[in-house]
């Protein structure tokens, strides 16, 4: 066996270009999932039974079906009902909506650890619910949930590799393309793995730093 570092070095620029799309997918995915997740979480704990049930169904469905299947559904099924999404939009939507189910549960856990007295204090002052959520509950829930949210982002970096299946030119897809030309799968896929690892390692360090800076004492 002849392991060739040369192949890796020559193709690294392409892999890194693919990694940019990996980051685009995972960062837009997490943004979408946090925004959606806040609303799903709010529905999940709302006083209205119908909202609660709808949120529970959403969470159970998106967590119960493999993301790859969801991705294919978004990619092939939505056009059939007249919604012709570009592949990139379908991928981001699938990743974000699936992740939102998990983010909703992360936020619910974080919310439950905020003492009820804080909400009572706001109610006693006459602070309306929207301001209560926007100013008091959500910022704290995001802060408390930050370690889990960073984990979720790292997870998204990994699952974004599935988008290669619908032809998005992210890191995994680029690696496949290069392999098709060079017939060096061992080197190329190991190199791709290394790039993924570096991204995720960096993210987890950044997460740890942010956590330290956001602590209030």
């Amino acid at each position: 066996m002849d392991f060739s570092f040369d192949v890796i070095l020559r193709n690294m620029p392409y892999l890194l270009a693919g990694a940019r799309w990996t980051l685009v997918l995972s960062l837009t995915g997490i943004s979408l999932s946090v925004v959606l997740g806040v609303f799903i979480c709010a529905a999940r704990i709302s006083a209205k039974g119908l909202l609660r049930r709808a949120a529970a169904v959403y969470i159970s469905a998106f967590r119960g079906i493999p993301l790859l299947v969801q991705l294919l559904l978004f990619y092939y099924l939505l056009p059939e009902i007249g919604l012709d999404l570009p592949a990139l939009a379908a991928a981001i939507l699938a990743i974000g909506m699936c992740s939102a189910a998990y983010v909703a549960e992360i936020l619910r856990g974080a919310l439950q650890s905020i003492p009820a007295g804080q909400t009572e204090a706001a109610e006693a002052l006459g602070i309306p619910p929207v301001a209560l959520w926007r100013r008091i509950l959500v910022p704290q829930a995001l802060r408390l949930g930050l370690p889990s949210l960073v984990n979720e982002l790292i997870l998204l970096v990994k699952v974004s590799s599935l988008a290669s299946v619908v032809g998005i030119g992210e890191l995994t897809r680029v690696a496949q393309n290069i392999t098709g030309q060079t017939y060096r799968p061992l080197e190329i896929y190991l190199a791709a793995a290394a790039v993924y690892f570096v991204i995720n390692f960096t993210l987890s360090q950044l997460g740890r730093m942010a956590e330290r800076r956001l602590r209030l004492d």
């Binding site: 109610e123 006693a124 006459g126 008091i136 910022p139 209030l216």
Partner: peptide, 16 residues
């Protein structure tokens, strides 16, 4: 409620 002030045993300040 905005005209009725309330102070709690546990303070209930917003920590952030």
């Amino acid at each position: 409620r905005r005209h009725i002030g309330m102070v709690f045993q546990q303070f209930n300040l917003w920590p952030h």
